[in-house]
Design a protein around this nucleic acid. Structure first.
Lengths: 112, 112
DNA sequence: CTTCATGCGTAGCTACGCTACTTGTCAGAC
DNA sequence: GTCTGACAAGTAGCGTAGCTACGCATGAAG
């Protein structure tokens, strides 16, 4: 899948992944890959800046920890983040309906 | 609807609109607005360059005409364009499924 | 001791949609 | 007679945001 299409939807995906529990950056990348059956294999240069954006926006909060000598930055959803996620879900639904009206498989507006 | 989300899907929308018949730029903008119930109100600075891109790619062909003193550039889908549209449709379906797995309304993977 | 998985991060690039603008015709208002 | 606004095309420059390609460090495996 061409990942450029994610433009504007990545933040929502990250929030959705964190909805199930706090994760550190690397684990988020793996979670996205796993839950999408490999379709979403996003590079760190995409994920880390995006997480910083979300933290600046107050949608996630991060805490450092050290696991077997390795530094980890674990992110968790905040309450505003949860609200934002709800908004993103609604936005996604509208987007899906609108675009689907043009690209849906059963969309011919002048069929018969 | 935030139109920035269109990133990467605009070409597909334009092809889909032209699938129903040739249109000139201005009419395409109106068609998008009409078929989306006003959700997609795209500025000329978005549409015209996009149509040029599609023409360079060989997905549409344009012909000039003059209607009551006004110059019109009418675009129509080419055969490669039709194939491209089919590909975009498949891509959209995959994209929709993948993102929907995270943002769908009934997606909690660890519900009970 | 070298390689690979884990883990974080940034600099610079590029694609692409948007804002704001210009040019021009024609219809209708004033 | 002039002016506003719909119609119709177009470009220049901007900003956003994801990507490529790096660099750094630790620990396990060969």
């Amino acid at each position: 899948m061409k990942a450029q299409e994610l433009h504007g939807h990545l933040d929502a995906l990250l929030l959705a992944v964190l909805e199930q529990g706090a994760l550190h950056g690397y684990a988020i990348i793996e979670a996205l890959r796993a839950r999408s059956d490999g379709s979403l294999d996003l590079p760190t240069g995409t994920i880390y800046p995006a997480l910083r954006r979300l933290e600046r926006a107050g949608h996630v909060a991060s805490t450092w920890s050290t696991v077997s000598g390795r530094e980890r930055r674990t992110y968790e959803l905040t309450d505003p983040g949860r609200q934002a996620l709800a908004g993103e879900r609604a936005g996604w639904r509208e987007f899906q309906l609108t675009v689907g009206r043009f690209l849906g498989p059963d969309n011919p507006p002048t069929p018969a």
